[in-house]
Design a protein around this nucleic acid. Structure first.
Lengths: 246, 246
DNA sequence: CGTCGTATTGATCCTCGTCAAAGTTAGTGG
DNA sequence: CCACTAACTTTGACGAGGATCAATACGACG
């Protein structure tokens, strides 16, 4: 479960407990689903390579995209305590994942409290992404929504320590974008054109290019400082113990 | 922290560990805030009486309501692992709360794994409320949004084991409703009138009356079975131990 | 009884959804 | 390697849902 130790440095023992639980990495293809609605959650999935998204399908076949998942993310955190999945998880690209059986999680809670705290923290971080999107959708018009989204993804990518270029690949169709931001497919296209004309962001193919951070942040009401990802020291107990306890 | 043991029955010892942490109950007034954005989270709050909401204030003074909190809810679960609060928490009515210092939480994780699991479960449940709202806002028009919301709140109320009447009090102004559902204040009023005319829901003062469940559920795409609140048995490890381990 | 927060109603405008068609890219198989 | 198809994107025209502005009405409360 990479990325889990982003905030809390695990000991050797804690690492071993986790990897004992994980399956071997296996390949998944674009369009594959990791789970379906109403299924009983059996695994978390650690996303090693590729992008995924979680989405909601209503009975009239409308789909709403709830969150995007980048390499390094753990999928299923929001659902695994329930008897049934609420969402569908679908791969946006080919990728590689590992499965973590949920039946093993409660042992982690017992044997490795700091891993449990990491889970709690990771869950809250995914939660904040979704809350962010809710704020975006509740308060912004089409233009600002896309602006906000572009900055948000850029910020998340930067957080993984990958790259910080203004240009990055974004494996999303405009349909998916529209389902993510609550607007029609057509209007996404129009708005993207407008943003390109205003020299704010440029999108082509599967990539996106942020041209004017300042202006985008202004119209989107985006304050990156509000996205500070760091752990509450009070939660981890002042000084997080970094010395191994094995 | 009432409501935490809704899914996992605590032992005597676990109960004692929790109440050792909690402050005495104290009164709060309508309009009081429990925390502000950018503050360092220091407490969770267990809501004994009254309603609250968490909301986001953008710099242009626009507000988006993120979630409602009913008596029994624990507030702050979504923020407490971060260094800064993202939201504001505001009392919608007078009420009574208890504070739980976050500095004590990591001891709970160490000493009482099953309490930690409860926290994880409770966090996920609040998460699902918000995800629900996101789906609602992304996919529905004004009418369906309000329909969905009415059913959602009814469902949550019923879940607390309080009442199951079709009529219940809802301490929300139309302004707050509009901020919750992403529509203008004026349009909330209009839509409520329309719903009343169609004999679907009736709202007056601080109360709401659901007239036609079937039809509401239809236009709102609301499936209560999707809201099953029960714990994943795999997560708690098959048979949740109910015998005390003190 | 006046004042302030809240709710209703009407008129107008505009953002955005819908429908439809054409243009583009990617993927497939011969 | 090219033709064929399906998926995706762009563009236009039109209309509807909902925002905005403004005025009025309705409480609640001091």
């Amino acid at each position: 479960m990479q990325n889990l130790d982003r905030h809390i440095a695990f000991t050797e023992r804690e690492h071993r407990l986790i990897s004992a639980l994980e399956s071997e990495p296996f390949a998944v293809a674009r369009g594959d689903t990791l789970w379906h609605p109403d299924e009983v959650p059996r695994h978390l999935y650690s996303l090693h390579r590729g992008w995924a998204c979680t989405l909601h399908r209503s009975e009239d076949d409308a789909e709403q995209v709830l969150d995007l998942h980048l390499p390094g993310d753990v999928l299923g955190l929001l659902d695994f305590t329930f008897t049934t999945h609420y969402t569908t998880a679908e791969m946006l690209t080919d990728g590689v994942v590992r499965a973590i059986p949920i039946a093993g999680i409660h042992r982690l809670f017992q044997a490795a409290p700091r891993v449990a705290m990491s889970l709690q923290a990771a869950t809250a971080r995914q939660q904040r992404n979704i809350t962010q999107r809710l704020v975006n959708v509740l308060g912004n018009d089409a233009c600002s929504r896309i602006a906000h989204f572009a900055l948000e993804i850029h910020h998340r990518l930067a957080g993984t320590g990958m790259e910080v270029s203004n240009r990055f690949t974004l494996p999303l169709t405009q349909r998916r974008l529209s389902q993510l931001l609550g607007m029609s497919e057509v209007h996404v296209s129009r708005t993207l054109s407008e943003l390109a004309e205003r020299r704010l962001v440029l999108r082509q193919r599967q990539s996106i290019d942020i041209l004017d951070f300042e202006e985008l942040a202004r119209i989107a009401n985006f304050r990156p400082e509000r996205f500070s990802d760091t752990l509450n020291p009070a939660f981890v107990g002042r000084e997080p113990p970094t010395s191994p306890d094995l």
